[in-house]
């Protein structure tokens, strides 16, 4: 019986000790890890969209709640003005969700750039949405409003040949981004003021 109690006590103490240690380390590294993940997973897309901005968009980020979901926004400062934000939205592709980063000029409500962040599309077919700049370049300058559809569905988006489902996913993500942008724009403009200097 005494041995039994000893086993229970030792295991309990050891587990709680390791639990405490891990919680402490997690708390201290949380922000750094979030920054690293953004930098290496979303960073390339953000940088290519906000090319030439004078700040670090991954540092200058904020969150806004849209209904139940919180979205991150990355600020691009051009000529001393925080005129552009990038936000990420998702659309269903051939192999799961496609993450699309959309850069918007908040004055004109136009798209400055689009880039795919995460996807699990077929390599060489759907994955071209990320690797072929021609595909994402077609969105540049379009107003970020209403619905985006591929031409086969009666829309305006030139689909990647052989990858219609992927193109639909990207279009759906853009439609989603347009919706989010419209809903949170008042809050967005408030937040952006804090980045002006």
């Amino acid at each position: 019986m005494r041995e039994m109690i000893k086993m229970v006590v030792v295991l309990t103490v050891l587990s709680s000790f390791s639990g405490g240690l891990l919680a402490a380390i997690r708390n201290n590294t949380k922000e750094r890890i979030e920054y690293q993940q953004l930098k290496f997973v979303k960073g390339p897309a953000i940088r290519s969209i906000l090319e030439g901005c004078s700040n670090d968009p991954i540092v200058d980020r904020f969150k806004i709640k849209d209904g139940d979901v919180e979205h991150s926004f990355f600020v691009g400062v051009f000529d001393g003005k925080p005129s552009t934000v990038a936000l990420e939205s998702f659309g269903k592709g051939f192999g799961g969700n496609i993450g699309v980063m959309v850069g918007v000029n908040v004055k004109e409500d136009t798209i400055v750039g689009v880039g795919v962040t995460t996807h699990s599309e077929t390599p060489g077919v759907g994955s071209r949405a990320k690797t072929e700049p021609d595909f994402t370049a077609q969105f540049q300058g379009l107003p970020l409003k209403k619905e985006f559809k591929v031409k086969a569905d009666g829309g305006q988006v030139d689909a990647l040949s052989g990858a219609t489902v992927t193109s639909r996913g990207v279009s759906a993500a853009l439609t989603d981004a347009a919706g989010i942008y419209e809903r949170v724009k008042p809050q967005l403009m408030e937040k952006l003021k804090t980045f002006a200097n």
């Binding site: 030792v10 295991l11 390791s18 240690l21 380390i25």
Partner: peptide, 23 residues
């Protein structure tokens, strides 16, 4: 069981540190 708790703790520590510093 005790060894595994100890080992798993340190592995998680390494995992967190690597994510933070050598992503």
């Amino acid at each position: 069981a005790c060894f595994i708790i100890v080992i798993a703790t340190f592995v998680t520590v390494v995992e967190l540190l690597m994510q933070a510093f050598t992503y």
